[in-house]
Design a protein around this nucleic acid. Structure first.
Length: 1068
RNA sequence: GGGCCCGUAGCAUAGCCAGGUGGUGCGCCCGGCUGAUAACCGGGAGGUCAUGAGUUCGAAUCUCAUCGGGCCCA
């Protein structure tokens, strides 16, 4: 494998990414990876289109990373993945941005500027941002088709929306109606429920007296936070179930009669500062039906004089405020519905811009917010109380203007009629997590209201309805061709204002013109699943692929894209447009708060990438938590991930120099193609640690597969990281280091090369979907000449069953615990790992521990740096015991002799006493001249370690370490101290692995010097690759030291050592 | 006010569905290793499992209520 190269000593995500990006681009890897799967079983993914506002935030990045990870995985599995990216490019947000840029504040300014130049500005804005965002996504390593992204502004896309509306009309769910809608007075348009954002605001909170018709000083008391809607009042509602009181209330000597809910009398009158009251009578709400009253604003709003105000029944009236609700069907949804039921007049004296019309009488021309104050003033004595209230109020999602409710003429889709079908379809979809569908989405759809799809704006898909000026009949055009044919005009660009100019002759002889409205922008993305297949212009792909196999978006899209798509799809095809959905969480800051510009806690993907690289960001967001939980961004967590990838980098580069030195070549099937099956053949001959890591690898692949199937990406990534850190870095690599250093060409070295090569190839494959750059970089260096060009072109391979060895994995786990226990026992003994010990005893009754320690004894001995590792029963017979008198039982039993019994017990040989008690159950001790009988209850025993031993516990066993030194052990200990210093100096001279040196050592202790020299000189020379070495007591040969290139002094456990080394000139 | 989700050491997370000794990582303290080396490893301290009540022999886990956070709605 002469292609393997050494790599930089530290992992730099950005360097790797730059190189890999360059490779992908030069070799057109993305195209090739797709082509490789072309024609295979299809996997149809639909990208939820981000809105083209120009920057991506952490949540957007997370969203695309999730998509990319899953799609890369599917592609490795051989599926032909349809991965067209998409962009949402119409709508109010862009209009608002462009308005800001042009300095406009009203629609009139836009009209004056001209719709044509205005929408062209919008188009340019969207197109530019689309490209910026695509570049940002690419940098994240996201492989979606950005070249051919679907764009909601494209004519073919617009056609899909038109076609869908035509279906709605055919199915008779399209309706034109006069209804109350959310209205933004700044944007002068209806907005959808989904476009309303709720924020806390302070509003007036007023209690108003409505005079009863034909009565003197008798009133119904209502409460409202929108005084400006009082000029449009036509009724009040009471709850038929509630008890209402007729109260005589006194204030400043005057008495008046007030009606309100009985339970609320106290608090209302307190607010109105009444000094006294008495209840005259009580009635049920239902009995108040039909009572008539007058508007207190009749003098200001002439229209009010003609309105027959009355009391109506409504179940939605709550026991709050006064229990009587002011009803203005022109300005409230519930009011409007109630009005329909009761046949109330819909009075709406407010225009598009939120100003009162002439019908508003004294308020004509005034803004609603201004009218709030005027109304309060005009109410005069009819104002019972006033205050301020902070409550949630709806605002326009784009311009943040408080919305108002207005009754207007709009186009609707009667979604409420489709509710049952939608609920049925939800159950057929596979949801991740399950409750996203069964609970959350289900509950939302259950409440679904009709969808107002018309907007009185410019930048959007024009509603393809042409209506006759004379007879008012209308036609919905489903395609551009239909429109061309009917109008005799070629449709170049189906946007406003171009399509507005097209007229169609009506059957009645009149002329049809397009209705002025454009679509709600949510309707654009609602048709994405077929628009992205270029339906209806093309049918073949639609027939073959639709509905989508998978989509994934944030939890906010429950009411957004999950919903709009389902609604549109039920209308168009009567079935769900997606088969499975992963609902992911929101990106929050480290405190769990929403990221927002105003809070200043935004974290941009760029800042993370520039510091750590895209792979680190990817692995972080994928592993930090379950996809459906909110992501609490934590920089420390990102750093930890970076460290993990650095460990992977070290693991990967560790064997490379040795492989290069030995000209290692992986087993090949045919010339230059790796034979991944070869490993299985030599499996029985491999050392245990190799078979173990191969088993772990096989287990890991299975584990990852399972987690990927259930979208548990956090578990998949954590399993991989655990493997890298625990199994590979902290264990396997440690076990095979010495095998890598072997000079001779021995079989176990080749086996180690082949094994680690195999593991790294698999790891690169597994990590392809997660860290596509690093995986590619590893693969580029490891692959053989005729292997697939890219790690992303490999086929998912599941290792042979034969590799799985659960017993071996279990045994190795025991050994790792043993290893930890030995380290702990050594720490107690203050015996460094470098120093050998004579013996480790594993005392246990557990058959698994016994099996493991026996079978993997070679590894135990080596890891423990012990001459022997042996098994012993539990408790270990080498232990001593100290008898401890149990005064709780001795006291009552022996009375005043107790202290002397205690003394006798503790004087006895604990070990003997214990054996006797265990055997006979009782024995005698001598107290003075008499012998007394004692039993097990009177004595407890403490372990006593033999001199020089320490111990530590592991699971189901105790490890005893004999840390006593012998001259032989001491010699090796010091020898290893010498080796370590000479190696350190080699490093300082920057020598490479194969260089030789000349070395000399002076030890300031004649005994130690001769111990090391006599037994270990040759071994030291071998280890440090020395051609010559003198080991002498201090002062014997200073000249030899001073001649060296590098000299150093060391303090080794209070013994002074001087060392000197030089490069050996002779070639190796 | 309603629906869904979340709350476990300084921080982040596992365990919860199927009740029985609360794991892990980072950080911190102490030590080790040194041919992966501006790395790596071991040990230790650190927890009212948000709060309160209930079910149970036994609750982080099941139930209810409350508090805090998130998304969505009214």
């Amino acid at each position: 494998m002469d292609s393997v190269e050494n790599v930089e000593s530290t992992y730099s995500g950005n360097d790797v990414e730059e190189e890999v990006q360059e490779f992908w681009k030069r070799q057109e890897i993305y195209r090739k990876a797709k082509e490789r799967r072309s024609g295979n079983r299809a996997y149809f993914f639909v990208d939820g289109p981000p809105y083209t506002t120009g920057y991506i935030h952490l949540g957007t990045a997370w969203n695309k990373i999730l998509k990319d990870c899953i799609l890369r995985y599917r592609r490795l599995q051989g599926l032909d993945v349809l991965d067209r990216a998409g962009y949402d490019m119409h709508g109010l947000p862009i209009e608002v941005k462009v308005e800001h840029r042009l300095g406009f504040r009203t629609k009139k300014e836009i009209e004056a500027f001209g719709i044509e130049p205005f929408i062209e500005e919008c188009r340019q804005f969207a197109l530019k941002n689309k490209d910026v965002m695509s570049d940002q996504f690419r940098r994240l390593g996201v492989w979606l088709d950005f070249e051919d992204a679907y764009q909601t502004l494209a004519p073919e896309y617009i056609e899909a929306a038109w076609w869908t509306l035509k279906r709605a009309d055919e199915k008779r769910v399209l309706e034109q109606g006069y209804r109350v809608v959310n209205w933004c007075p700044r944007c002068e348009t209806a907005i959808a429920d989904a476009e309303v954002e709720y924020e806390d605001v302070s509003d007036p909170s007023i209690f108003v007296k409505f005079p009863l018709k034909g009565k003197e000083d008798e009133y119904l008391v209502i409460w409202t936070t929108t005084p400006w809607t009082l000029p449009a009042n036509v009724a009040v509602a009471v709850n038929p179930q509630f008890v209402y009181a007729r109260v005589a209330a006194t204030k400043e000597g005057d008495e008046e009669i007030l009606w309100m809910a009985d339970d609320l009398v106290d608090q209302v009158l307190r607010k109105g500062r009444y000094s006294d009251f008495r209840i005259l009578s009580k009635v049920l709400g239902s009995e108040m039906s039909g009572m008539e009253y007058l508007s207190p604003l009749a003098m200001r709003v002439p229209r009010q004089k003609k309105i027959p105000h009355r009391v109506v029944m409504a179940d939605f009236v709550a026991m709050e405020n006064t229990g009587i609700v002011h009803i203005a069907p022109g300005h409230g949804w519930e009011d409007y519905v109630l009005g329909l039921k009761e046949g109330l007049e819909v009075f709406c004296p407010v225009d598009e811009s939120g100003h009162f019309t002439d019908e508003g009488g004294a308020y004509a021309g005034r803004d609603v917010h201004e009218v709030n104050g005027l109304v309060i003033a005009d109410l005069g004595d009819h104002l019972l109380a006033r205050g301020e209230i902070v409550h949630r109020y709806g605002h326009c999602w784009r311009c943040k203007t408080p919305i108002i409710y207005r009754a207007t003429q709009q186009w609707f889709l009667r979604v409420s009629e489709l509710r049952e079908r939608m609920l049925e379809e939800i159950e057929r979809v596979r949801w991740f997590p399950e409750w996203a569908g069964s609970a959350r989405f289900h509950d939302w759809v259950k409440e679904a209201r009709d969808w107002c799809i018309s907007r009185q704006r410019y930048w959007g898909i024009p509603i393809p309805i042409w209506q006759c000026r004379s007879c008012h009949s209308y036609t919905v055009f489903g395609t551009l061709a239909e429109l061309s044919e009917a109008s005799g005009t070629e449709v170049r660009d189906p946007h406003r204002p171009y399509v507005d100019r097209i007229t169609v002759p009506c059957r009645c002889g009149g002329t049809m013109e397009r209705v002025q409205d454009i679509f709600d922008v949510w309707f654009d993305s609602a048709v994405a699943s077929w628009a992205t297949l270029r339906f209806p212009a093309r049918r073949e792909e639609f027939e073959r692929l639709w509905p989508a196999d998978f989509i994934t978006e944030g939890q906010d899209q429950t009411r957004g894209w999950f919903y709009s798509q389902l609604g549109a799809s039920i209308i168009a095809f009567d079935r769900s447009p997606y088969r499975s959905v992963l609902m992911h969480g929101f990106a929050l800051d480290a405190e769990g708060r929403k990221m927002s510009k105003s809070l200043g806690n935004m974290v941009t993907p760029e800042e993370i990438i520039s510091k750590f690289g895209a792979d680190v960001l990817r692995l972080y967001v994928l592993s930090a938590n379950a996809p459906w939980d909110d992501l609490k961004f934590n920089l420390e967590g990102v750093r930890t991930i970076h460290r993990t990838l650095n460990v992977l980098w070290n693991v990967y580069r560790f064997p490379l120099p040795y492989m290069i030195l030995d000209r290692f070549s992986p087993p090949a099937m045919t010339e230059g193609v790796w034979d991944c099956m070869a490993m299985a053949k030599e499996l029985p001959r491999l050392p245990e640690e190799d078979r173990w890591i191969l088993s772990r690898t096989a287990s890991l692949v299975r584990e990852v597969e399972g987690y990927m199937e259930s979208c548990e990406l956090h578990r998949a990534t954590r399993a991989i990281m655990h493997f890298i850190l625990e199994d590979l870095s902290r264990w396997y690599i440690q076990l095979i280091r010495s095998r890598m250093w072997l000079e001779e060409d021995v079989p176990e070295k080749g086996q180690a090369y082949r094994t680690i090569y195999y593991v790294l190839r698999y790891l690169a494959l597994l990590m392809g979907p997660i860290t596509p750059y690093l995986a590619e970089k590893m693969y580029m260096n490891l692959k053989m000449a005729h292997d697939p060009e890219s790690v992303h072109m490999l086929d998912w391979m599941r290792p042979d069953e034969a590799f799985l060895d659960p017993v071996l994995e279990e045994d190795m786990e025991v050994v790792r615990q043993f290893d930890d226990a030995v380290a702990a026992a050594r720490q107690t003994a203050r015996r460094k790992l470098r120093w050998p010990v004579a013996e480790c005893i594993v005392s246990t009754g557990d058959p698994i521990v016994r099996r493991a320690i026996a079978r993997l004894n070679r590894i135990c001995t080596c890891r423990a740096n012990s001459r022997r590792v042996i098994l012993a029963d539990s408790p270990w017979e080498g232990l001593g015991w100290r008898a401890i008198a149990q005064m709780k039982t001795i006291g009552p039993a022996f009375g005043k002799d107790a202290p002397r019994v205690k003394e006798a017990i503790e004087r006895a040989d604990g070990k003997v006493l214990r054996e006797v008690l265990a055997g006979d159950g009782a024995t005698e001790v001598h107290v003075g001249d008499t012998a007394v009988r004692i039993g097990p209850a009177h004595v407890a025993f403490d372990e006593v370690l033999p001199e020089g031993f320490t111990s530590a516990n592991m699971k189901n066993a105790t490890v005893y370490v004999d840390a006593r030194l012998t001259p032989e052990l001491e010699g090796e200990g010091y020898a290893r101290e010498v080796i370590r210093r000479l190696q350190e100096m080699r490093r300082q001279l920057n020598l490479s692995v194969e260089d030789f040196i000349l070395a000399d050592v002076e030890i300031d202790d004649p005994r130690v010097s001769s111990l090391v020299n006599d037994g270990w000189r040759e071994a030291i020379m071998r280890e440090v690759r020395a051609r010559s070495l003198k080991i002498l007591p201090a002062g014997s040969d200073i000249m030899s030291l001073s001649s060296h290139e590098l000299q150093q002094e060391w303090d080794v456990d209070d013994i002074l050592m001087r060392t000197g080394i030089s490069r050996s000139a002779s070639p190796s």
